[in-house]
């Protein structure tokens, strides 16, 4: 699971090692990546929102 999170985070960042990408595409299930992607995207929204609320403080 942690590997999936790491892969999704590096996808958010936009850079991924070729071997890891190959492994994800050959062994991973698309479903897990999509779910983790959605969860992390929401988490990102929450983090940015928290920063905005703190900054507006």
């Amino acid at each position: 699971m942690w590997e999936v999170v790491k892969s999704v985070l590096s996808a958010f960042f936009g850079v991924q090692r070729e071997q890891r990408r190959r492994r994800d595409f050959e062994q991973g299930k698309p479903g897990t990546f999509i779910v983790v992607g959605i969860v992390l995207a929401m988490l990102m929204v929450i983090v940015v929102m928290a920063i905005a609320i703190m900054a507006a403080g």
Binding site: V48, M49, I51, A52, I53, A55, A56
Partner: peptide
């Protein structure tokens, strides 16, 4: 203000 900041940050991203 919070909305302005949120959308400014995401836009910069």
């Amino acid at each position: 203000l919070v909305a302005e900041l949120f959308f400014m940050y995401t836009t910069m991203l």
